[in-house]
Design a protein around this nucleic acid. Structure first.
Lengths: 211, 211
DNA sequence: TTGAAACGGAACGTACCCGTATCGGATCTA
DNA sequence: TAGATCCGATACGGGTACGTTCCGTTTCAA
């Protein structure tokens, strides 16, 4: 997030419209900078991208960026952690239907959206940038895995899935194949078809009760 | 591969020791350049790496690199496609044991070896560099998938696995979770333990005969 | 021994980028 | 209206990188 200077308020009226003098910062600039930064990160990678390209693509002066973030690293860290969560957990009452809807969503996102391409970039970057990896795993990956995990836990609670499952492993077995396929293929609609259903059905044989 | 100038031989003795005059190129330099290029690619990414760093790390002059490859792109393409295949297909007679051995191998490679870290980098790079993606998929991914696919086919032929399986999907379900976990975690030994066995056993329930 | 081509090292011109500074103008509060 | 801060644009110094060119040296075949 951009530097919020609101912390320095007059000591008396702490929480009431502590507004700085002068022209306020443009929220539009905030948005366009973060969006452009994410786009350049996806396209050129961490080291390959440049603040000058980000500024040009955002239609913004370089100073406007450095007024908000002290360095390239800080900007990218914010840009990467700024996904307005796109994944919505289905709740149909049936684990199979929930998982199927989820897998189709993930397949869609992974193969085409910025969030999917960002994941691909992060895969390579995390090995060289532990700081960035930490933020991304906590703010993005963690949240997504929680959504999938919740559906699985719900299935266990309803007796549809076996009780002794390793939930983390089941998440990997569900999400892994979809992401792996999205990473190395560039096709779009295949996963939306019957393949997703076959994936779920095959997995269900291994995790459902009455095996 | 480095430019092989051997194609211009005297028209008469075509295939007999057509050796160029002067000092021959150092095979040691070939090796150290490709190795350093791969290492820099893994560490800094495609755009982030530099020929000058590669030369320095390889202990070689820049001219020695440009004598072999015309550009950065050509060098990286060769470096990425130059894996002396590390994956060996087990053949124990039991599909379960074969797959388990394979998964443990893949987990080991993916989490620590250059080939695993290269895959992570390529995941991000393939979206921006179709040419590089094509080479990598054909020369590296294709070969690895063939090894896994062969084990599955063998299992079907022996009647251990169901006949109507979508082999490509089964490969994804086997390899995807392992790579996904290796990408977002940095732990090493967990996969070598009981988790790999649980993964295989869960998957086997979905693909084995007598379901 | 001679000639050819490779070697590592260094320099070159061009281009790009980082982070900072400065400009005239725009937009706020008081 | 006066003062403060933002805006996009432009320029700067210092650094890095690409791909080329030149060194003096080394390693081959003839």
């Amino acid at each position: 997030m951009p530097d919020q200077v609101v912390s320095q308020v007059s000591s008396e009226r702490a929480s009431h419209e502590a507004r700085a003098p002068g022209r306020p910062r443009s929220l539009e600039a905030d948005r366009s900078i973060l969006s452009a930064a994410l786009d350049r990160f996806i396209e050129d990678g961490y080291q390959g991208m440049s603040i000058e390209h980000v500024a040009a693509q955002a239609g913004v002066g370089k100073a406007t960026i450095y007024r908000r973030w002290p360095s390239k690293e800080a900007l990218i860290t914010d840009a990467v952690g700024s996904f307005s969560e796109e994944l919505t957990a289905p709740n149909t009452g049936s684990v199979r239907e929930d998982l199927l809807g989820l897998v189709r969503q993930i397949g869609e996102l992974a193969s085409s959206s910025p969030s999917g391409r960002c994941f691909a970039r992060m895969a390579g970057e995390m090995g060289s940038n532990p700081e960035l990896a930490k933020v991304y795993k906590e703010k993005v990956i963690g949240h997504r895995r929680a959504i999938v995990g919740e559906i699985i836990s719900r299935g266990i609670a309803r007796g549809e899935l076996r009780e002794e499952l390793d939930i983390e492993l089941v998440i990997d077995m569900l999400v892994g194949p979809v992401l792996y396929r999205a990473l190395i293929k560039r096709e779009q609609p295949a996963k939306t078809g019957r393949v997703a259903a076959t994936l779920i059905d095959t997995l269900m044989m291994g995790i459902a009760t009455r095996a």
